[in-house]
Design a protein around this nucleic acid. Structure first.
Lengths: 235, 235
DNA sequence: ACCTGAACACCGTTCAAGT
DNA sequence: ACCTGAACACCGTTCAAGT
């Protein structure tokens, strides 16, 4: 409990128990990587940039991670931990599921640079187990048998992760072309030929007003409505 | 109607009406790009590889596309057209929505290399308008007012695209590490401490049996169940 | 045990020069 | 009008050499 009673390898010290000459270790590198992605976007995360920011040769980080991919997996773990920080099951199962889905998406939207790099490689670590346990517990509480609980867990988790990754990918397009796309999108749908696309013309004014959060909340609400409906049929 | 009555620029000929010396044009380049991605994955799509396959200098393609990004946008258009090829509205609105969502996802899964490159930059062209018109028409047929039709259209389209892009991203991980991940995933969930994660332990045997298609169909079924429920409340 | 520095095999893009 | 070839400013990774 003193915090330094073991000689097991710790990221902040090398195996001799002496800080390395440069102070380099996995956590320091991940912090620097995170800062780079947050400030300048995922395309700025290069080993050379990392070396510059850390004041070391760009190959020095390869003494702490076997390759760049291992750094990305490290960032993935940080993202999961951040998403689940302080999570507690809510008063009822639907609120628990809603909260979890929102946390996953929110973490991706808050750190789009990291999310787009790692959404498909969230490796199975403790943080993820904790989240999965809470979701499955809520679904079993809702009265589903184990096979359905497994299916709905994966449907919810994948939807939240896919939505988060998708939004993150948009956020990472360079701002100029993103803004151009959005404007064009607005205009083109509003100007689409009413003769060729009568239904589109009717709803076009509303399409422009819908933001990503409303889309996510709509999808989540639909899914949970149906889950609730099916749980009542069971019970 | 003869197929060559205009002097407007066509991809297969240069402005003098004479084939270019190398036979290079946008369609030839896009076909080659598609072949590269299908055969060797998205990371193999480089200008140099494109030059080699086309038998020209690697900078020659920049005479037909302003940069690599424009090539990707060209591929995006091909993907949309492929997804909607021969689409016709079905007998009832729910069948139409189901078919459209499946087509979007299937196109991503069938061409994961392209999908992962372009899922976020499906630029607003004719193919997309046709698909959107069919979806909105189905939702209005279901009795929704325009604002709700717009919301549900975006919820469905984004879910299918996000799911397709997400699955495509997995398909593009190199096969070795993907297989390793899947195995680990199976094992780790089955071995997760039943004391710490009792609910997870109960459903673990089922988790391994669920494939991506079942997850997608489950999600789609849930969403459409809820849409149907809400349409009945309206009507 | 850890870091450096050079080298290697790649990228996308620009631009003067050819035809 | 289109293509070539050299050049530029980048990548990630390897490896012998230092300390």
């Amino acid at each position: 409990m003193t915090g330094q009673e073991t000689s097991a390898e710790r990221p902040t010290r090398n195996r001799r128990g002496r800080p390395s000459s440069t102070g380099l270790n996995q956590q320091v590198i991940l912090d620097a990587a995170l800062a780079i992605v947050e400030q300048d976007g995922p395309h700025s995360l290069t080993l050379r940039r990392l070396g510059t920011d850390l004041g070391v040769n760009h190959t020095a980080v390869l003494r702490h991670f076997s390759d760049k991919d291992e750094i990305l997996r490290g960032l993935a773990e940080q993202l999961v931990n951040r998403a689940l920080e302080g999570f507690e099951p809510a008063a009822n199962w639907r609120a628990t599921l809603t909260a979890m889905a929102r946390r996953i998406r929110a973490a991706c939207v808050a750190h789009p640079g990291v999310a787009v790099l790692v959404a498909t490689r969230v490796s199975r670590r403790e943080g993820e187990f904790r989240g999965a346990e809470a979701v499955v517990a809520a679904l079993r509480e809702a009265g589903f048998e184990d096979r359905d609980a497994a299916r709905y867990y994966r449907a919810l988790a994948d939807t939240a992760l896919a939505a988060g990754a998708y939004e993150a990918a948009f956020a990472n397009l360079d701002p100029a072309s993103l803004k151009g796309d959005r404007e064009a999108w607005r205009r083109e749908y509003l100007l689409a030929s009413p003769a060729a696309y009568p239904n589109l013309a009717a709803v076009a004014p509303f399409l422009a007003d819908i933001d990503e959060e409303e889309i996510f909340e709509t999808t989540l609400g639909l899914i949970l409505d149906a889950v609730e409906l099916r749980s009542r049929r069971n019970g």
